[in-house]
Amino acid sequence: MTLNYFLLLSAFLFCVGVYGVLARRNAVLVLMSVELMLNAVNINLVAFGAYVDDPALTGQVFALFIIAVAAAEVGIGLAIVLLIYRNRVSVNIDDVNLMKW
């Protein structure tokens, strides 16, 4: 199959994730959009791994590492979101500007 099919699919998924991160206001939805972007990167890694035909399967191993780090990221992210909600009774990230200016 053409390598570009997978790369273009992952580029689309990444850009949808970028739109979600920029346009969403609810912190949980921003985390979901970040997951979309991480998955796009993983598709890229696995596609290139199949393309270069590496016996050490570097692409797939890196995809596994990214999945593990993404699980850690979403755990920490949701703990922070929960803390924000507990302190402000809202998860609207436009309101959380304490460290912004």
């Binding site: 997978f6 949980v28 985390l31 979901m32 997951e35 998955n39 993983n42 598709i43 696995v46 596609a47 791994g49 199949a50 797939q60 995809a63 596994l64 999945i67 593990a68 993404a70 699980a71 979403v74 755990g75 949701l78 979101v81 929960l82």
Partner: peptide, 25 residues
Amino acid sequence: LTAEFVAWVQVLIYIGAVIVLLLFG
């Protein structure tokens, strides 16, 4: 893409764990 283990890890970790975490959130 012939990556069977990554596919199942995706199902187990993402659909199994991350989505449940997000739904808890």
